[in-house]
């Protein structure tokens, strides 16, 4: 369990009133060593932010009396050594607007991801990933939800 506290980090109202940000996450990971030599990993995580801004601050509505949602959920499944040197992973995540995440992620997000890594030799490896991320809820005053699909493939060589 993690508890995150950031003093004065949150803008709570449209008037600019600031407040402390406080959130907690609970997470677990289970692993099974399968007889075939593969390893199955499952991880899950739930997060909640206790101090939440008004909906209007995060453009989720027009009601100043209502707070934006602060619940987050993430689950992932990974199969290691699916074939020799090959690892495969899946992720699904939903974060409501009040959760402050890293700069690589949005709040108010719906995310799916599949990732594959393969090690050809001790020096050469490759990784491919396909990630979908989109707005979990539609913002007020916009035409539609934002959505993006990120494909990438990369090769890494460690010289010796």
């Amino acid at each position: 369990m993690d508890v995150i506290y950031s003093p004065d980090a949150l803008i709570k109202t449209m008037d600019g009133e600031r407040g402390d940000y406080m959130a907690a996450t609970v997470k677990t990971q289970l692993g099974w060593d399968l007889p075939s030599g593969r390893t199955l990993l499952w991880g899950g995580e739930i997060a909640y932010s206790f101090n939440r801004p008004d909906e209007t601050v995060v453009r989720m509505g027009t009601n100043d009396d209502k707070k934006a949602g602060g619940l987050g959920f993430q689950s992932n499944l990974s199969i290691q050594n699916l074939f020799e040197g090959h690892n495969l992973g899946f992720i699904v995540a939903i974060l409501e607007p009040s959760l402050l995440t890293s700069s690589d992620y949005w709040n108010n997000i719906l995310l799916f991801e599949i990732r594959h890594t393969v090690r050809f030799t001790g020096r050469l490896s490759a990784e491919t990933r396909l990630r979908y991320r989109g707005d979990h809820q539609k913002l007020s005053g916009v035409d539609q939800k934002r959505w993006q699909i990120f494909p990438y493939a990369r090769l890494t060589y460690r010289f010796r």
């Binding site: 995150i4 959130a23 996450t25 959760l99 995440t101 690589d104």
Partner: peptide, 17 residues
Amino acid sequence: TGLCHSASLILILFINT
């Protein structure tokens, strides 16, 4: 570091290099 830093989490779980 968890959902509040989900990028780190995912990297650690899925990049096995």
